[in-house]
Every structure is written in C-alpha cells, then in structure tokens.
C-alpha cells in the first residue's frame, strides 16, 4: 500500500523574508541568562554552542556585538594539558569541541593564543592504526572525527602531522552502494555523515574518489515537495540538512541540482517571528544550531546579500580562511 510521503505542509502565514535583525538579537541573547534551563542543560556542548553563535553572527556581519576578549579567553581557558579542548570547564576534552574551539579562534584571528603544538599532538594522537580517528581516549570511532581531525589540522596548517593515506583509506571504507558515507564501515549513508566525508576529501584533495554524479543525485533527492531537505530517504525535512546536503553538493559542484527558490522558501518559513532564530521545521522551538545552518544555507544559495559568503567545507565565513596554505578542493561540471 502506498504510504503518504513524509513531509510538512507550509502554512500561508509563515515568514517569507529574512528577519536578520531578529536573529542577531536571538544570537546575542544566547547565554545572557546563565540560569536559563536550555543553556544550562547544553553546558556539555558549550564550545560548539559558542561556535554556532559566533559563526552565525559573523555571517550576519555582527561579530562585534559580542565582546571579543571575553570570547577568546573563555575558549583559551578550555584547552587541557593534553592539547584538546573541553566543551566547558569541568568536562573532558573531545575532538568535537576541539574543532569548535579552533574554528572560533581562527574567526577571531586568535589562534596564536593557544598551544598549537599540543593541539597538533592531541589530534594526531587520536588516529588509530587503521587510519580512523577516535573522539577521545574511550575509543568511539566515527567519520565525523576524521573530518574534525583534518579540519583542525588544516586550520593551523599542520596536515603533515597524521598518516594521510591511512586516514583517506578509512574514510573510503565507509562509502556505500548509494555513493554516500556512513559513520563507520558498514553504516548507512546519512547527509550529516556525507558532509563530513566529502568535507574531509575536499581538505585532503581526494574528491576524485567520490562518484559525484551518483552521490549528487542521492543528495538532490533529499528535497521534498515542501522544498525542505531531509537527511535520509523517507525522513522529515529539517533546516540543518539544508546545510549538510547543500554544502556537500556545493563542494561537488552540483548545488544547482536542488530547486533553490523552494529551499529558500522552506528555510525562511522556519524562522521564529517572535524571538528570532530558526527551528528545524516551521513551528518548532528555535536554537542557535539551526540558526547557524539556516543562515549558512541561505549564504550558499546566494539569495541573501546581507549574509556573508560561507565556505562549504569549514562552515566558516570565507574571509576568515585567507591564511590557509591549501584551499579545500572543489569539483565542477
């Protein structure tokens, strides 16, 4: 029996223009109430929270709305002796938060304020014999961590510190029948994971290993009648997949395979007209995570001149990446 397609219907009264000033308010209010429930309950990923907020503000051209010195010192304080970064004091270092910290510091041109040598040795120390990366010493392996590792190292121009051939070999062992990638060998393709692996291959200059037509087709099939993108077949659309799918397509030179106008419409419909910020789907609670990925996707779509250009590999403003020794690879057709 045919089942109804999983999607949402966009109501007529949803926002259709960018409420940038509201989003800036939403972002700058992040963490102003230290006792806020959501803020407190997400302490364990604070560093990433800060990265989402800072990057979104930077893309909106309002980085200076938050005190740079405070931000930098809060980040620097989170570097452990091991060289890795914890999400916030009292927590343990992890490669996820290490990348967020490095991204923030690069955006503020403050990377020199940390111990880069110990950072490099922390990241390279997480590589295993088979080329994969663990998130911390407790052994979880995931292609997300492979991306974090090469993104971190390339941002400080130290890709030489790891066994690159092995690292690439591992990521390629996670490729699937549909041209996509999963979290580990055998795991199902997922747009977030695909972004990590395609981003990884763009940093390491190995994009030719991807079947770009096959994967690009899978990615553009994520677009649903509502215009929104899902992360896997038969799933609901979500603003954050606008980023994971779109950035991958952009790196593969196939951004034009989705319908831009309809996607823009879906993303704009996910804005919260009261508080500002974007949610995953229209009518849900907004948060900094979806706010960044909503703005970044609009930037890639090039339809909103008030948002600065974003780099699809690093999810950082392009103007912050001028210092890189080698630019991430892009495909064209």
């Amino acid at each position: 029996m045919a089942k109804p397609m999983r999607d949402v219907v966009l109501a007529k009264d949803l926002p259709s223009s960018l409420l940038l000033e509201k989003h800036i308010e939403f972002l700058t209010s992040y963490g102003t109430d230290k006792n806020d429930y959501e803020f407190c309950m997400t302490e364990y990923m604070r560093m990433s929270g800060m990265y989402w907020v800072m990057t979104a503000l930077n893309l909106a051209g309002c980085q200076d709305r938050l005190p740079a010195e405070e931000v930098i010192s809060a980040v620097v304080k989170c570097q452990e002796e091991s060289g890795g970064f914890m999400a916030s004091p009292g927590h343990d270092a992890h490669i996820l938060y290490t990348l967020s910290a490095v991204q923030i510091l690069v955006m503020y041109d403050a990377i020199d304020q940390i111990n880069i040598e110990s950072l490099v040795s922390y990241v390279s120390g997480l590589q295993k014999e088979d080329g994969s990366f663990v998130g911390d010493k407790w052994g979880e392996v995931d292609t997300r961590f492979s991306f974090c590792a090469v993104a971190c190292l390339s941002l400080v121009n130290r890709l030489d510190a790891i066994n690159m051939d092995k690292a690439v070999e591992f990521v390629m062992s996670c490729m699937n029948f549909d041209g996509g990638f999963g979290s580990c060998p055998g795991a199902e393709s997922h747009a977030g994971q695909i972004y990590c692996c395609v981003g990884f291959l763009s940093i390491t200059g190995e994009l030719h290993r991807v079947d770009a037509d096959l994967l690009g087709w899978w990615l553009c099939e994520r677009q649903l009648p509502s215009g929104g993108l899902n992360g896997r077949p038969e799933k609901l659309p979500d603003v954050c997949y606008s980023w994971w799918v779109l950035s991958s397509l952009s790196i593969l030179g196939r951004l034009h395979w989705v319908h831009k106008g309809q996607l823009v419409k879906f993303i704009l419909a996910c804005q919260d007209t009261e508080t500002g910020g974007f949610s995953d789907r229209p009518g849900d609670m907004p948060d900094p995570f979806h706010t960044l990925f909503g703005l970044a996707a609009l930037s890639l779509l090039g339809e909103s001149p008030s948002i600065k250009p974003v780099d699809p590999t690093y999810c950082m403003p392009v103007h912050c990446l001028q210092h890189l020794n080698s630019k991430p690879q892009r495909l064209h057709i």
Partner: peptide
Amino acid sequence: DYQRANYYRDLRSR
C-alpha cells in the same frame, strides 16, 4: 520532476 530538472539536464548532457 522540476525540482531536479537540472539533474536530468546534466545527465542528458552527459
């Protein structure tokens, strides 16, 4: 399938 029209156009070109 106009959402993916450009995909089919590129496939046709190929």
